[in-house]
Simulated scan of single mutants.
Amino acid sequence: MSVRTLLRQHSILTKIYFCTVITFCSLYAAQPIQPVFQHEFALTSFQAILFTTLMMLPLGFAPMFYGVLLESLSARLIVRTAVLLLGGLELVFSQTSNYLLLLILRGLQGMVIPAILTSLVSYISFTAPREDVQTAIARYIAATILGGFLGRFLSGLCTDLFGWRFFFFLLGALLLWAFFLLRTLEKDANLAYSRPKAAEVMELIRQPQFFWLYCTIFAVFFVFAGLLNFLPFQLKAINPAFRETGIGFMYFGYVMGILVSLNVRRMISLFGSETKVAMSGLFLYIVGICGFMIPDHRAMFLAMFVFCTGMFMAHALLSGYVNTLAKSKKGIANGVYISFYYLGGTIGSFAPGALYECCGWKVFLASLIAVICGAMYCLRRLQQSAATVALKAA
């Protein structure tokens, strides 16, 4: 392979990672400043969190309903059109003052994001040399984590400096730039996408090892989304003068996901199996949640590192383990995994709020610990089911 070809591949992958970071910034930009929306539009906390919930909801159903589109059109057309639409929607969002219209715009953005992410992953597989695909995908995952943190932190910082509208306008401008950068993508790349049929999905879920795995990841992201979504309100309750920059910086522990994702193989070697790493991650998850019970933002900042390490240990290992369990139709198994992951996050982003509103922060956290205990039970059943299947195969 010539140096020129290698440089071109590197340039395309860099543009894809940039687009990934900006897309995830858009997904989570509203989360740390939900109290700002609550104050400006005289909303309840439930109404304010819908700005994040509506962005997540389509991601839970995308693998089921995007099949026709993704099988019939080129990835280049899909991703550039979706990026252009998302950029335009962000610009309109930044200039809108009606709450209902803002919610509609966030819902539309959430419908566009799955098309972008699915196309970008496909392009990585298409562009990267076969021997470098695993590394390229690991960098993509790191880009999603970096985007998740930067979206939260920069949103809070820009809100303090220039008001909440500025960052959404900036995101719109960056997405339009990404649309321009992605013009160099190959035109004839088609998505290697497997559209799952309902019967195939049900057949998969009825298998005990997949059922317990999907229940585990549902619970894991339920708790993650719940805590991160209501944390800004609790920080404001502890100290009403707490600035949005500080709230955004509280999510810095999120970058632990990059460290975890790049050391998956080492952790498996250390613990002995994927499920043992995931179980250890769930124990850390509970330790992190306990740290959030201390009513001090410094303790919460440190707890975030433990909490995020536990979450990403479970997620990184289970997302790989689903491919180990799936002897065939891995695309469908991964698609259902993504659906359960984001459906857990969508429900978790608002459902625990009822306890937070009526019973307070500590009861809210105790309920999340109970969910993680449920996840541990599911993971234990997964270990037993996988052992039974392996025994029968032998």
Rank of each mutant, 00 (worst) to 15 (best):
G248S: 10
L228W: 02
A30K: 03
I347G: 00
E90W: 00
M256Y: 02
I104T: 08
A178W: 09
F24E: 08
S328C: 07
L117G: 00
K15W: 06
K187G: 05
P32G: 08
L318E: 04
F51K: 02
N229A: 09
A225L: 05
M1C: 13
L70K: 06
F179E: 06
F222E: 01
A173C: 13
C358G: 02
D188V: 00
G310Q: 06
V306G: 01
A192K: 11
G272T: 11
I238M: 15
L146M: 12
R195Y: 03
V255E: 00
M64C: 03
G172F: 04
G226W: 00
C19E: 08
F37G: 06
T184W: 07
T275A: 05
A299Q: 08
F271Y: 15
R265Y: 05
A128D: 03
G281D: 11
F364G: 12
G360V: 05
D188M: 04
L6G: 08
L174D: 14
A241V: 14
Y17I: 07
E131M: 11
R265F: 07
I238W: 14
F37Q: 05
N263Q: 08
I347N: 00
R80Q: 08
I268G: 02
Y123L: 12
C378M: 02
F149N: 07
A178D: 12
C158K: 05
C308F: 01
S122N: 11
R165M: 03
G310M: 07
N190V: 12
L204I: 10
Y321N: 13
D160L: 14
F249R: 06
T44I: 05
N239W: 06
S328K: 13
I369T: 08
C359A: 14
M256F: 12
F292N: 05
S280N: 11
T81V: 14
P63N: 10
F271I: 08
G60I: 01
L157M: 10
M111G: 10
L259R: 02
L154T: 03
V389F: 00
H315N: 14
A178T: 10
G272C: 11
T324V: 15
A42M: 04
L150D: 04
V83G: 07
